[in-house]
Design a protein around this nucleic acid. Structure first.
Lengths: 343, 343
DNA sequence: CTGAAAGCGCTTACAG
DNA sequence: CTGAAAGCGCTTACAG
């Protein structure tokens, strides 16, 4: 079906090797006549020749491709637009493509099925976008896999790029402390189910950052976690109404994730608590939330940097597969919408 | 570096063909002894054999891979999490991988550089995630490219899967009309820059849906588009304050995209307009906004369906490359947060 | 019933 | 200076 070098060679009346060299501009040391080169190039164009990358790979031993393996939970997975775009940008500089693969889901029955990228040679390296929800079997299979790899969004000593969630929790809290707040609550993401394979490191780290900042300022942590239960969408407003009706209600809130912002806002509105005058809010969220209508100040995940840095680290590892690289921590940025004020 | 069939064959003392057949379970018609088969399998495991997919592709002529080409604008591009995940899910059923490529950006200097996927055979088909910001040269090069392709998120007669933006605009408007609203405003996304290569079809279609619904109800359209100018983040609140202070101010708003929700909410709050009692809001947004803290009722883009249906269509086209398939329109869903009320 | 050989499309070291 | 041949890793039709 597809046109091959051989077909061009037959039409022009030369050997495939000549065609290959001319089309790849490797004719530097060869003195093919301009006429012949032109004939080859034109025939290639006329026939609609497109080189077959597989054949090239077999020779070169490289794939020109990096695979991103993403852990997921049902329809959700940590795969933000900005992360992908910045990975792509950095890969482009290195003339590599991006292959996307979802890791088997903890909620699915086949949660230890090995994905094809881990059973086949099809990339030069792996980026593991690992939040949680991945079975220990798969993790160990990944670790044993021959290709160079870099982890993102998880906490590892080496070969890893991840956001500094502890610092983010600390910064958000300090910001509120500096504005004079004393009763600062930390609210976990009660809308989201934890995994049977454990929690994401950000859950403990963000809280830990908050707790340290509070302790350092001599303040008592106030943590609300719904007692570990998941609170459905239509119960969330009630949940916050209870918190905001407490005798010593918090004057400021640090929120694990922005999913609960609507519930807090509408609850505050109904009770008659004005934001930011009577209640300050800082949440954590992703880059796109800034364009998608987020209504609270937020610590924004360093998705762009994570994409870029992980690719750079992987390229380095592809060049020197045995080298262990010290992990890289990334800072969050701050997004202002006006939900934070002096106490 | 990587282990090959030959190495296994040498260790076990058989021919490569035997190894290939045993490891691929193609030994049905062959009567290799259990002992030999076991030796081959164990050696493969011990050496850490992983088949090279390129070599396989060269033989089979197929790549087991579908490329997604995404148009983009700077760091932005239409690449929602749910779209990717659902594509991946459907591709997995067909044992294909997903290759991600960004199309050259209208804002970059090399906006007509052909991406490698369009110069090389590396996939069995293409999905074109085309919003706008792509140069006409590239579009025509895509159209000429030999592989089967399916377009998404754009309006084409055939080989295309796209959200019914006209209907979405109509439904949002009708919902407000049924609740008794008469002064319903349509507000464009004044925060977003249009492209030099034209607009996305959703811009005219959503408005057209709104306009038709208004007309049918005998109401006069009220369109606010900032006179075509881009309004920066710190000017948006003022923009809405002006609109909401008009003598005959709208009692309801249909919003092109959710990016402006924070500005509307805080503007309404300051003027003292209660939501939803005195102002109803319906916006349009993506799937993830539902988890990322969207604070307004919204028509949600059918990202999951678009991913699934586009892959199904492409698989069909890969089987029958010459077949033209009638385009598929998808419905938006409705996300309720409580910003809509009777007038 | 089994193994050796041909061939997929390409590139490049090597012989003439 | 040029062209034919070898070979990348794999699969499978074909000869013994």
């Amino acid at each position: 079906m597809a046109v091959t070098l051989k077909q061009i060679a037959d039409v022009v009346g030369v050997h495939v090797s000549v065609v290959s060299r001319v089309l790849n501009d490797k004719d530097g040391e060869f003195d093919y006549t301009e006429k012949r080169k032109k004939a080859i190039r034109e025939t290639a164009r006329k026939l609609g020749y497109v080189p077959n990358i597989s054949a090239r790979s077999v020779k070169s031993g490289a794939f020109g491709c990096v695979a991103l393996l993403v852990s997921s939970h049902g329809e959700r997975s940590y795969l933000p637009n900005r992360l992908l775009v910045s990975m792509h940008k950095e890969l482009e500089k290195n003339e590599k493509h991006l292959l996307l693969t979802k890791l088997p889901d903890a909620t699915s029955e086949d949660y230890s099925r090995t994905p094809t990228v881990l059973k086949t040679l099809m990339a030069d390296g792996l980026i593991l976008d690992y939040t949680h929800h991945v079975s220990p079997e798969i993790i160990s299979r990944i670790e044993k896999f021959i290709l160079p790899k870099v982890w993102i969004n998880t906490k590892r000593e080496t070969d890893c790029v991840y956001p500094d969630n502890l610092k983010a929790g600390m910064e958000a809290t300090n910001k509120l402390i500096e504005l004079g707040h004393k009763r600062i609550a930390y609210i976990t993401d009660v809308s989201y189910q934890t995994s049977k394979f454990g929690e994401h490191y950000s859950i403990s780290d963000r809280y830990e950052g908050y707790a340290r900042a509070m302790k350092k300022a001599g303040l008592k942590p106030m943590k609300f976690d719904g007692e570990g239960k998941i609170i459905g969408k239509n119960q969330q407003e009630k949940y916050f109404t209870e918190i905001l009706s407490l005798k010593n209600r918090p004057t400021a809130i640090v929120l694990y994730w922005s999913s609960l912002v609507p519930a807090i806002l509408s609850s505050a509105r109904k009770i008659g608590i004005k934001i930011p005058d009577e209640l300050s809010i800082i949440t954590v969220s992703g880059c796109t939330a800034q364009n998608d209508g987020l209504c609270a100040d937020a610590m924004i995940e360093p998705e762009i940097e994570m994409g870029k840095e992980s690719v750079k680290m992987l390229i380095e590892k592809i060049k020197k597969p045995d080298k262990q690289i010290k992990s890289l921590l990334l800072n969050f940025s701050y997004f202002e919408t006006g939900t934070v004020k002096k106490c």
